[in-house]
């Protein structure tokens, strides 16, 4: 069967849900961050596929932007994690209970 749009989109959805699963279930902050990257990449795949099958370059431009923003986000997020680790000596979400009264 020729690989059509839906094939790419299904792969993207599976990848997205894997990322979601990681965010919900993993308790290491770094892994959660990696899962977030997975989700972003899944979105990238969907954009590229749609751009390809619609003969429109706008989707690819969007992916370019997403990659850039993701890079910035990773930089800031990782800096936050480092700062947090310095303060509390942990990278584990269950130890971060400041939001609970």
């Amino acid at each position: 069967m020729t690989a059509g749009l839906e094939h790419y989109l299904v792969v993207s959805a599976i990848l997205f849900c894997l990322g979601l699963l990681g965010v919900i279930l993993r308790r290491n902050l770094l892994i959660i961050y990696m899962s977030l990257e997975l989700m972003l990449n899944a979105a990238n795949l969907a954009f590229v596929a749609l751009s390809r099958f619609n003969n429109n370059l706008d989707g690819q431009i969007m992916v370019f932007f997403i990659i850039t923003v993701a890079a910035a986000e990773v930089a800031v997020g990782l800096a936050l994690i480092v700062a947090l680790y310095r303060k509390r000596q942990t990278a584990h979400v269950e130890d971060l209970t400041l939001m609970k009264l």
Binding site: L20, V23, I24, L25, R27, V93, E94, L96, T97, L98, M99, K100, L101
Partner: peptide, 16 residues
Amino acid sequence: RLVQTGNLQTYAFLFV
């Protein structure tokens, strides 16, 4: 208050 566990992942779960 029981809903407010302070656990990030509970919030993420509810969000999903």
